[in-house]
Structure formats: structure tokens, C-alpha cells
Design a binder for these strands. Structure first.
Lengths: 340, 340
DNA sequence: TTGTACGCGTTATCAC
DNA sequence: GTGATAACGCGTACAA
């Protein structure tokens, strides 16, 4: 065995020598492709195991110009939403033999861009990005490349490649329409921080637009509190809003913030839903164990993950799939708004 | 430009030709190593940008026998604990130029092994594993390899390489001792599923052992309910336990389950903490916005992440660091157990 | 079914 | 400071 700089085990040649065959025969046997007699194949596999042969993906990638690496970018991992979408895809990708290179962007397009550019040097098999807004450089690069790309969680008319998500503006409208039907006229929105999360902004925009169409509705009260997944942020943001405004219904960026908001309402002497309505978003597990079940919107996170994974895998295998899939959301009445 | 199978942009040679220099000079300029005049370096960088040159990490890795890929394995991402530990490390690794290949094992040693073996083919710069129990094959492989490895969240006397975590058995003992001092004698533990999570089993063991040393303490009541991060599992597991036993204090696998358990206690007509004590684990954000603050144990997740990242990075750079760091936990009295 | 020659894009080494 | 040459480990193409 010739010497190598940093000895990381036997290479194909070592297996071949040990088995008394050529390198190519060993390669074919280990890859499970046609053209090797069963006897030799078994012998080669046995020897490879005995010698603890680890293939060198770099060398393979260099020849084939692709890899089994998949780039996945999400804003963060504190949100069950992203965790569930990921869980929905991981099994599919794992079984297909892919490894996931994960990035957490903290809602920064620059961070996402830097990560993607680093990953591009590995010639990844595909990209999975959260949302439909990216750094222009990244969108352009991916559009020009042949790399299959999935955008998920949000929708757009003009996806980079394929897209599976929900219509956040429509979801905001949906909530507003329910509120309006119940007689609410002083809407408030809590929790979206400025220019960070386009999906949250979309929900807020839809919510506001629907109210704006009702003649006697007051303008939207708004509190832009920090981390969307923080209970504390929801509580503090709500307290801040109640100090200045008198909304009759509050739509929160997430269930987390809504839950924190509930405790702020109680602290402010307001009773829910008699004095004020509270509405979350996502219908997390949490909302079902609250003393009063939270009014919220159920989002198909797992389905987005599984569908997205299937579609991306299809693209990797050069199979055509719909470029855009918009999945439905469902209003969960709960008990933190007025009854019909 | 010679033709390539799947055209993925210019290569070093193209930059070199365009700049009128040799490939090596281009390589040096782009890597920022010594031995290139400032004038040429600038020119080369300019051309690389204009041509949208993307380096080929596989080729580099093939020569250098290593990569900037880091393997990170966690049981799942639904747990803020893991998310926070990851968040604590990510910045460090990002800034150092590493990409993270993430695995979610669902507490399966086989899944972790399969993922690690796939990743080994990329010659990763390091591994980060949750806990200290792994598939024997994996432990053996890593011990024999030169690959820096961090085990986190749990501790062990004999780490593969370096280890940063907390002592879960001691944490369980700590909780039990507080309970005993307050006069509790009928302990219950909710939420650890059989043979899945060694850390949870450790906490339970410590909890049980301390009670066992008190002569008039009843044996531990136990409910092994499913997903440790599920509110619903905590509620249902508690209901199940209360149907058969009369514990006076319940220690839960996580805050999530404890929160679910609170609603089950209320549903069973028990008042907390008068009739029964409830204790969570982790001191998540959630616990502070509850009507009564949850009694729990604060775990230094973020610190584990940052410390672990620092130590692993040191190992990668062949700098010595302590093999084992045991970080302290803190009992959070809250208000769901008796007062002193 | 099996083997040989060559190239993938980059870096280490050594000569100039 | 700069460049030629030889690897790195594997897969494609083609020959036997």
C-alpha cells in the first residue's frame, strides 16, 4: 500500500489488489452495477468490509460532477413549523441516500447567500429554501443553474424551480373575514418584526386588507415585537399594545406569541374572549392543552415537507412535476374568540 | 474552454487563461496564500468574480484529504434543547467556514450509524454527536480515526474525543433531594420511553435512587409515555398515572410534558401544588409565562453549544482542550411544588 | 465479463 | 514571485 499524507483507510486499489481483480471490477462490484460475476462480487464485498473500506465521495463527485448533498435552508430551528417540515422531508431524502447540509439564516438573505455559495462548491444535488424571497444573486444563480430547487412554506407565481407552500396573504384574509363576521372591528396584529419575515408580513397584509374593506373598521393596531417563537415576546408585545390601544381582537404571528399574549391579557384585567379575542397561527400541539383551546389556523407543515420532498426528488430524477402547489389552511375556531 | 459533461461554470484553468497566468498562480491568488504579487492577485480576483468562478470543493478535498464539512447528529429538532445547543454552535462554525451536515436520529443508534458512515465518505472535519451512547461500530470507528469528535448534552468518563454536557443522574438526584426536603414521599416520573433516551433514563435513575435512600418513601410510580416533547403525551401520561397511583410529586422528562401534565392534574380535580407537585426539566421560555411558574431545572443549553463548538474547533486546529466538561444545572423553585 | 487509458479540478512540490 | 509536473481516488469509454 503506497503511503498517503493522512492515512484514512484503504482505497479502491487496495481492495482490488486484495481480491486479485482490477480496480474497475472492484468499483463495479461496490457500486452494485452490472458486469461482475456474482462470485467475484461477493468476494469483493467481503474484502471491502473486512478492510473497512470507505468510499471517497470527493473523488466520485469530481468525476460525476454531482453529489448526494442536499442544501436545506430555514430561518431557525426554534420553530416547530420548520422542524415539522424538515421531519416531513428527511425520511424521504435519507432513504434516497442524500445527506442534508442545513443552514439557519435568522431571516437574513445575506446569510443564506453566503451559505449557498459555500455549498455550491460541493455541487449539491438540490436546494431547499424557505420562502420565496432570496438574495437576488442567489435567485439568479439558481435560476441559471441546472440545480433542482424547492421553495417551501410560501408560494409565488414565478418559482425558481418548484414550490410547495401556503398562501399567507389569503390566510390573513381568512382570519380577518371570520373576525369581521363575528363583529370585531378593532383589529390588532402582534409579533411581526420589520422586514424580517415576508410570510408574517403577508399574513398581516391580508388581515389588514380585509378589515380595510369594511367601512366601520378601525385601522390596524400593530406591535412589532421580537422573536416570533418566543412566548415572552408575545406577552411583552401584547402588554405594550394594550397600554396604548384598545383592540377587540388580536391576531398573532404564531401560536407561541398568542400564548404569551393570553397571559398579558389576563394581567391587564381583560377576559378572553369576552373582552378581547386572541388568534394564533399554526395550530401547534401546544394549543390543544391550554385551559381554553386557542383559536388559530392549522397549517399543513408535514404535508408541505412530504410533498416538497417528493417533488424535489422528482426534479432530481428529471421527472416533471407541477411547478407550484398551494396547499390549503384551515381555521380552527377554538375558544379564544366570540362564539357564532 | 474544453467541454465538460455538465457545464457548471469556469474552472481554475479558465481564470488562469483569462488572466494570462498559470493555474497555480490563480489557485494561490484565490486561496489568499503567499506568493502572488498584489497586482496579479487583484486582477485574478476581479476576473474570477466576473466569470462567476465557483471553486470545486471535491477536487480540493481529494488533494487535501479533508473537508469543511461538519457532521451534527441530534435526536430531533422538535426540542428547543437541541435547537438551542445548535444555535449556540452554528455561529462559531459558520464564521470558521464550516458547513453542517445534520442528522436527526429519532433516538436510533442505527440511524446515526448509517448517517455517519455516509458522511465519512466526505472526510468531514469533525463530528458532533448528542449523548455518549452510540452504535459500537460508530464509537470504534471514531476512536480509531483522527476525526475530532464532540459528544454533548450528556457526560461520560471515557469520551471518544471531547465532551461537554451535564450530569443527568445528578440532576435527577438534585430534584429528588429538594422534594424529600419538602416532605414529598410518593414520587412519580412521567415521560421517558423505554430504552430510547439514555439522558432521560439517567434523570429518572438519579431521582429514583435518592428516594430509595429514604426509608419511608414509596417506590417510584412510572408512566412511559411517548414523545418527550409533546404536550399531549404529558397530559395523557399523567392521566394514566393518576388513574392507578397517588403520587404526591411528579417529575417530568421535559417542561413540555410537565405543562401537559398540569392540565391533566386540573382535569383530575387535583390542585397544584396543594394536592400534587409538578416539576419539569430544562426551564424553557414557556415556563415563565404560565399562570403559575413551573418548578423546573435550568439546563445550560446555549453554553453547552458555545463551549462545545469552541472545544471542537480547538481539536480541529490540533489544540489541546479538556476532554470532559461537566456544566452545572440549577434548580428553579417556581410555584408548582410546596413552598419551604 | 474483465481490464486499460485517461480525465475530472485542484493542490503540493520543486525548479526557476 | 511564478510555473511545470505529479499526484489525489474514482468513473467513463472503449478495448479485449
Amino acid at each position: 500500500m503506497r503511503k498517503r499524507q493522512s492515512d484514512s483507510g484503504p482505497v479502491l486499489k487496495d481492495i482490488a489488489v486484495a481480491a486479485g481483480v482490477s480496480i474497475m471490477t472492484a468499483s463495479r462490484a461496490l457500486r452494485g452495477v452490472e458486469g461482475v460475476s456474482e462470485a467475484k462480487r461477493h468476494e469483493i464485498l467481503r474484502i471491502a468490509r473486512r478492510l473497512k473500506y470507505t468510499p471517497n465521495s470527493s473523488a466520485r463527485s469530481l468525476v460525476t460532477m454531482n453529489s448526494d448533498l442536499l442544501g436545506i435552508s430555514v430561518p431557525n430551528l426554534f420553530n416547530d413549523v420548520f422542524a415539522e417540515m424538515l421531519a416531513g422531508m428527511r425520511r424521504t431524502f435519507d432513504m434516497a441516500g442524500f445527506s442534508s447540509v442545513v443552514d439557519t439564516t435568522e431571516y437574513s438573505l445575506e446569510v443564506e447567500l453566503a451559505w449557498a455559495e459555500r455549498l455550491l462548491s460541493w455541487r449539491p444535488a438540490g436546494f431547499i429554501l424557505t420562502g420565496t424571497k432570496h438574495h437576488p444573486k442567489l435567485s439568479q444563480t439558481l435560476r441559471r443553474s441546472e440545480i433542482p430547487t424547492l421553495q417551501m412554506w410560501d408560494v409565488t407565481d414565478d418559482p425558481i424551480d418548484v414550490c410547495v407552500g401556503i398562501d399567507h396573504v389569503a390566510a390573513g384574509r381568512l382570519v380577518a373575514e371570520r373576525c369581521i363576521a363575528l363583529g370585531y372591528r378593532r383589529p390588532g396584529f402582534v409579533g411581526v418584526s420589520e422586514g424580517r419575515d415576508p410570510r408574517a408580513e403577508g399574513r398581516m397584509a391580508g388581515f389588514q386588507a380585509a378589515f380595510a374593506e369594511v367601512s366601520d373598521a378601525a385601522p390596524l393596531c400593530l406591535t412589532r415585537s421580537g422573536d416570533p417563537n418566543s412566548f415572552v415576546a408575545g406577552r411583552d408585545g401584547t402588554a405594550e399594545m394594550l397600554a396604548c390601544h384598545q383592540p377587540d381582537v388580536l391576531f398573532y404571528v404564531t401560536d407561541h406569541q398568542a400564548f404569551g399574549g393570553l397571559s398579558a391579557c389576563v394581567a391587564a384585567g381583560l377576559s378572553v374572549p369576552d373582552d378581547i379575542g386572541v388568534i394564533g397561527f399554526n395550530a401547534l400541539d401546544l394549543t390543544t392543552v391550554l385551559p381554553t383551546p386557542l383559536t388559530t389556523v392549522r397549517t399543513p407543515r408535514k404535508l408541505i415537507g412530504t410533498t416538497g420532498a417528493r417533488h424535489l426528488l422528482a426534479r432530481i430524477n428529471r421527472i416533471d412535476v407541477p411547478r407550484l402547489v398551494t396547499l390549503p389552511v384551515e381555521f380552527v375556531p377554538g375558544a379564544t374568540i366570540r362564539a357564532q
